[in-house]
Design a protein around this nucleic acid. Structure first.
Length: 237
RNA sequence: AGGGCCAGGUUG
């Protein structure tokens, strides 16, 4: 049956949902694992409506969501800005005392951030037992999403004072706030700080920076970044 | 009781 679970996971991960369903329907034992695999596959494909539909179907079969299920549904609610559903979900999670789960915690932070309920996001974050680089990054990305780049940057400092080292995703989160605004100068400054920390930029880093440059006529900075990208790709990054 | 197959953050 573990084989069946893995098959569902594989098909779902590859986006072959018809096949995944077929395997799931033929599995001899009823288990939440293949359902979660399917939900995760829909999440990965960003088919969030399907996530919610699939979760409902799962529950109609008498299966109760576990932590993995909740993480998938929370992510879908956040991305769809399904506010009322997300709030109900949070209430269920609190009721079931599963909010301690670090995965659920950062998924909640992420969801509230996407709703634009930053005080709620911060509130959930503050209650987390263990804040790791992922929960910090969810918070940072949330502030960045709503243009609060200075708050996002201060998070980079705070997390370090709590001995959590920002990784490239955390830094990229800050950079993501400069896309809409086109604040190319700030983006470049953050990029410089990131390098001072000895962190290697990745493709997302450059895409974010270039995006912030694209709405300006700052050709020079764009060219500097172009040169950086070429330099890094020469080193195989 | 514990473990095994599924789950959280950044650009698009």
């Amino acid at each position: 049956s573990f084989v069946g679970n893995s098959l569902v996971d594989m098909y779902a991960t590859c986006g072959f949902f018809a096949e995944a369903w077929k395997v799931l329907d033929d599995l001899p034992v009823v288990s939440i694992i293949p359902w979660n695999a399917l939900l995760a596959g829909y999440c990965e494909g960003e088919l969030f409506e399907e996530v919610l539909g699939c979760a409902e179907k799962m529950q109609s079969q008498g299966l109760h969501p576990n932590a993995v299920t909740y993480v998938c549904i929370l992510r879908a609610c956040g991305s769809l800005v399904a506010l009322e559903k997300g709030l109900l979900l949070h209430a269920d999670i609190v009721k079931e005392e599963t909010e301690e789960d670090p995965y659920i915690g950062s998924a909640l932070v992420d969801m509230y951030a996407k709703f634009g309920l930053l005080a709620e996001a911060q509130g959930v974050f503050d209650e987390l037992r263990a804040r790791d680089v992922v929960s910090w990054s969810a918070l940072i990305a949330g502030y960045a999403l709503w243009g609060l780049d200075e708050v996002a940057r201060s998070c980079l400092q705070k997390m370090q004072s709590e001995n959590v080292l920002p990784d490239v995703v955390a830094w990229n989160g800050v950079l993501s706030s400069y896309g809409e605004e086109g604040e190319c100068e700030k983006a470049f400054l953050v990029y410089a700080q990131m390098q001072e920390q000895g962190l290697l930029p990745d493709d997302v880093t450059f895409l974010s920076i270039l995006r912030s440059c694209s709405s300006t006529t700052d050709m020079k900075t764009g060219q500097v970044i172009h040169a950086q990208v070429l330099g890094l790709s020469a080193r195989g990054v």
